[in-house]
């Protein structure tokens, strides 16, 4: 099994990459990963995605240490959004300073299962199947709803409305990605064509190499004159 991850600033962004990723092996059998896309029309969106990711990651590590397995993502998300709400209030932040999409992945290698929770848009690939998470360009950012839950029960009710969840078995190849994966465009004339999504999320060239995604991004540039316009964050796990 190999975990590949990549974060790459888009050509439309000059100063900051507004995407953020993490992929943690919490134990020999548990993988916890996330991709985050800060809202470009928000304020300091690179900060929003990084803060959200770091809080969720630390909460995930904490809950794993507390042996939480059932509803892991939901519990981690609940505790994280509570912390983000506290952080927002204690630092006088506005909602538009915290706008980031959230796609979380929890894999139990022993049980051969994966769970995904997505709030906001992005892309998934599960065993060769492409899944677009599209909220018609008006993603339901979690930060909009920080004041709409007070306890775990009300959070569960809220989550039902704003998230897309996927549970899957028999894992072979799984990817979570921000929507930057479909932002590749040619920067010069080049007759060579390829399917970028398939190349990055399904093709197995260099699959044993730790730099697989970075090298594929370079191949897209040099052989196909393709670069991502929007920021890109990908985590791919190949079994």
């Amino acid at each position: 099994m190999k975990i590949h991850k990549l974060i790459k600033i888009g050509s439309n962004h000059k100063n900051f990459c507004e995407d953020y990723i993490f992929a943690e092996k919490l134990s020999e059998t548990i993988i916890f990963a996330g991709v985050f896309d800060g809202c470009s029309s928000g304020t300091d969106s690179h900060f929003a995605s990084a803060l959200t990711a770091k809080i969720i990651k630390s909460e995930g590590i904490k809950k794993h240490k507390e042996n939480v397995e059932k509803d892991f993502l939901k519990i981690v998300l609940f505790e994280s959004l509570k912390k983000i709400k506290d952080f927002k209030n204690s630092n006088y932040l506005k909602t538009d300073e915290l706008l980031s999409t959230i796609i979380l992945l929890y894999i139990d290698i022993e049980k051969n299962t994966a769970e995904i929770i997505a709030i906001g848009d992005g892309f998934l690939q599960i065993n060769g199947k492409k899944i677009k998470i599209d909220q018609e360009n008006t993603p339901r950012y979690a930060a909009y709803y920080l004041d709409e839950f007070s306890d775990y029960e009300s959070f569960e009710n809220l989550l039902e409305e704003i998230h897309i969840g996927v549970k899957t078995l028999n894992l072979k190849d799984i990817t979570i990605s921000t929507d930057g994966i479909l932002s590749f465009e040619k920067f010069e004339e080049n007759e060579n064509e390829t399917d970028v999504f398939e190349f990055l999320t399904q093709d197995l060239f260099l699959s044993e190499n730790n730099a697989m995604l970075g090298r594929k991004i370079n191949i897209l540039k040099t052989k196909y004159s393709l670069i991502n316009q929007d920021d890109l964050g990908i985590v791919r796990v190949i079994f």
Partner: peptide, 10 residues
């Protein structure tokens, strides 16, 4: 159309 999956790296 040249497809990268068919590219002969060998």
């Amino acid at each position: 159309m040249k497809n990268i999956q068919n590219f002969d790296f060998d």
